[in-house]
Amino acid sequence: MTAEPILALREVTMTFPVRRGWLSRPAVLRAVAGVTLDVRPGEVLGIVGESGCGKTTLGRCIVGVHPPTSGRILLRPRDGGPLRDITRRDRALQAELARDIRMIFQDPFGSLNPRLTVFDIVAEPLRVHGEGGDRAALEDRVAAMLEKVGLRPDAMRRYPHAFSGGQRQRIGIARALILGPRIVVADEAVSALDVSVRAQILNLLQDLREEMGLTILFIGHDLGVVRAFCDRVAVMYCGELVEVAPAEELFRAPAHPYTEVLLSAVPEPDPRLRGQKRRIVLQGEVPDPLARPSGCVFHPRCPAAFDRCRNEAPELTSRGDGRAAACWRHEVVRSAA
């Protein structure tokens, strides 16, 4: 459990200026607020939270869409060796990292260029990174990759509009994996799919992960899917990590009150749980990200908040059994242990 991290986030913060009119002074939106997280090689780490919690922004910082405002992102080089700072990237570094860290997108319709054939889409990474050689060699590699994701090789001559959502997602996976990356950031990769197709894609990712030794950051909001698919889970609220734990543990006994609330809200496919399940009804709404509450961000809605929560922000602290939570109540448990 103490494997050296393949990817490490240190106090990563991402803020965006928000203009409310073009003459007004911009406000600062803290989308990600001081996230520190180790990603272990070969694991599937789930990042969950409600919309606007910063999980997508965090994923985008990692793949290099935008550099974080502060904090560091560290990557273990392919040959082992010490962690390398990849926070700030010029284009050359971004291109180099694009072989290692790749992304699978949520929207199976928006993520494929409608004007390119499947061949051009899947072969593009090879071309950009000067691999693959001539057309015939490229076609061979694309065909092999398409077969791996469960598509027939003759699909490469068609355009994305000829495919269904699930098949497009397979094409997106082929594009992400053709360079043999080490880390894949899957941002809500199955959220837009129907139940039956979703299971197909998750199983495919599971197979490919084992075959290619991938580390997957699985960003999602469907807790059932996250439980089934992920080894560890990180819960985000208002840009902060509130709990990190092995999936099994987290779902069995959530340590943070917000995780508890989240789990209690999931409608379970079992009508017998209807009356029995204790649903914790949250007060109020997710706070305006432009006006974060003092102390613990969750305290205004927390059913277990006490005085300290209103004034001091708890750190994400490890409990020693591979679990960590940012909660004063959890702190009490820890000091008692």
Partner: peptide, 25 residues
């Protein structure tokens, strides 16, 4: 039956694979 199998639950043992309905609509 297939639909019910393909919905992951928060309870019970964690499935290693989800049950998928093969093919497409």
């Amino acid at each position: 039956q297939a639909l019910l199998r393909s919905v992951p639950s928060l309870r019970g043992p964690r499935p290693r694979r989800l049950a998928a309905i093969e093919g497409l609509v």
